[in-house]
Amino acid sequence: FLGTVGSTAPFVGLFGTVWGIYHALTAIGIAGQASIDKVAGPVGEALIMTAIGLGVAVPAVLGYNFLVRRNKAVMERVRSFGAQLHAVVLAGGKRATRSTARSAALAD
């Protein structure tokens, strides 16, 4: 969910920007002249929509990256535990170390 929000929120902000510019151009067309009062409102709304899109996207991406990093760390611990458990099972219940592996190789 966080990845989806982080990747789509900037586009929602961009859509708001385009929508605001469209309204500004429509107001200019209706008025017949370009004045600051006809442009300022819609462009201000467009900038607010862009800021909201970024305000949603940045925390979502940071949260997503945090969770992915934490998940990778946990999976590495699980893999390490699995490797240790595998070594113990292969050693017949004894803890597999280099010295026991060396002595087993010498006995063969």
Rank of each mutant, 00 (worst) to 15 (best):
V61W: 03
L85C: 07
L2T: 01
G55S: 09
R102A: 12
A105N: 11
A83Q: 09
R79L: 08
D108H: 11
A87E: 14
A107C: 00
T17E: 10
L25K: 05
K72A: 12
R98T: 12
W19G: 03
G32M: 08
V89S: 12
G44C: 07
R70T: 08
K94E: 13
L62F: 04
I21C: 10
A51Y: 04
V78I: 14
A107S: 02
A104S: 15
R79Y: 09
L25T: 06
S99I: 11
I48F: 15
G93N: 06
T50Q: 11
A57H: 06
K38W: 13
E76I: 07
R102C: 04
L85F: 12
G41Q: 07
G92N: 01
W19C: 07
R70Q: 15
N65L: 14
G53T: 03
R95K: 05
R98I: 11
Q84S: 15
G41M: 04
G92F: 03
L14H: 13
A73V: 12
A105K: 09
P10M: 09
A51P: 07
A73L: 13
A107Q: 02
D37G: 11
I30Y: 11
R79T: 11
G3Q: 03
V39R: 07
Y64L: 02
F15K: 02
M75Q: 15
N65E: 11
G53S: 01
A60G: 00
S80R: 09
V12H: 09
L67H: 00
R77H: 05
G29V: 02
G63A: 01
N71V: 01
L106C: 06
Y64H: 04
L54S: 10
G44W: 05
K72V: 12
A51G: 12
T97I: 04
F11S: 11
F81I: 05
L47S: 15
P59C: 03
A57F: 06
F15R: 03
G93C: 06
A9Y: 04
H23Y: 12
Y22S: 08
E45S: 14
A57M: 08
K94L: 02
S103C: 07
V5R: 01
A57I: 04
A60C: 00
A57C: 02
L47F: 15
G93E: 07
Q33E: 15
F81G: 10
V5W: 01
K38P: 05
S35W: 03
N71C: 04
R70A: 15
F66M: 12
A46R: 11
G41H: 05
T4Y: 06
G16K: 05
G16D: 02
A101Q: 03
A105S: 09
V89I: 12
S80A: 13
G32N: 07
R102H: 07
M49V: 10
I52R: 03
W19A: 14
L54R: 07
V78H: 09
A51I: 11
A83V: 05
L62W: 06
L67W: 00
G55I: 08
S103P: 04
A83R: 12
P59S: 06
